[in-house]
Design a protein around this nucleic acid. Structure first.
Lengths: 144, 144
DNA sequence: TGATATGGGACTGGGGCGGTACTATATTCG
DNA sequence: CGAATATAGTACCGCCCCAGTCCCATATCA
């Protein structure tokens, strides 16, 4: 319908976990089991975040990750691109007609204006009815 | 990354086409060829829109579709659900944790606040750089 | 009555993405 | 040292979803 990739979802959750552990290193395994995320998959996600400087890493035994930048400085859009292995800088002009174009603009603005910190850092917690679809979805993934 | 289904995209485009033809009936074939949309697929989309009362139809030779309601009254979210054959009323509470929940809320609000008319009806046309990903995409589909 | 349209299904093929695996390298600790 | 535990990098796979097709019934026009 309009959904975030599960990878981006996992990335957000992990960042939330790391954020509330304020500076301490956490291994991929630790995060995975704490947040109920498949370990092998999470490893790859964390690698991506590291490659883009969002996380700093410590290798070797008792190593792990911690947050490496101010989460206010990266947008949701950027985060998504990171975990989806997409060329970060490449935005082009593309001749869209009419409605698609207008929607494109609004969506893209939305994604650029929401920072990861907005979503991940503690603030007033929001609790609202969710639009949910289908019956048999296995896991929760952000979806509208 | 965060993309609208192509069906929803086609639906918007078609509605735009119908809107500017102000009341006259257009057949699925006509719309398909005018808007460069696969005819067989578009037929199904138009059927869905008709089932939900967005379009009114005239059957038989020289029949077709025209817009059946005020496009201001339906949200982008509703439109998406229609073309994706999803139970319209079913929104449930779902225990999402933290970041996913916050994002869910904002996305869902966005989708509910933008009306189809906002996207489809003539207004000041927007022209902005587009976030575009990958190299080899065949067609344009709204995507952020 | 034949051509052209919608109505309402079922069906399929391919690509994307969620998830895995393997190898190399770095660090800790006994 | 060398075993254990981490990340780094990258290739790989299988399944599900969805774009797209097809078919048959029904309605309308000429």
């Amino acid at each position: 319908m309009l959904r975030l990739s599960r990878k981006a979802d996992y990335a957000l959750i992990s960042l939330g976990y790391l954020a509330e552990r304020e500076g301490r290193v956490s291994s991929a395994r630790e995060i995975a089991s704490a947040c109920q995320i498949p370990a092998a998959l999470l490893m790859n996600i964390l690698k991506s975040l590291h490659q883009h400087g969002v996380l700093s890493s410590i290798r070797g035994a008792s190593g792990g990750y911690r947050i490496g930048i101010d989460l206010h400085t990266i947008s949701l859009l950027e985060l998504c691109k990171m975990v989806e292995q997409v060329d970060l800088g490449a935005s082009e002009r593309l001749a869209l007609h009419g409605p698609a174009q207008a929607l494109q603009y609004r969506l893209s603005r939305f994604m650029r204006e929401v920072s990861v910190a907005d979503l991940v850092l503690p603030g007033r917690r929001i609790d609202v009815p969710l639009e949910r679809v289908g019956v048999g979805q296995k896991k929760q993934a952000v979806q509208v």
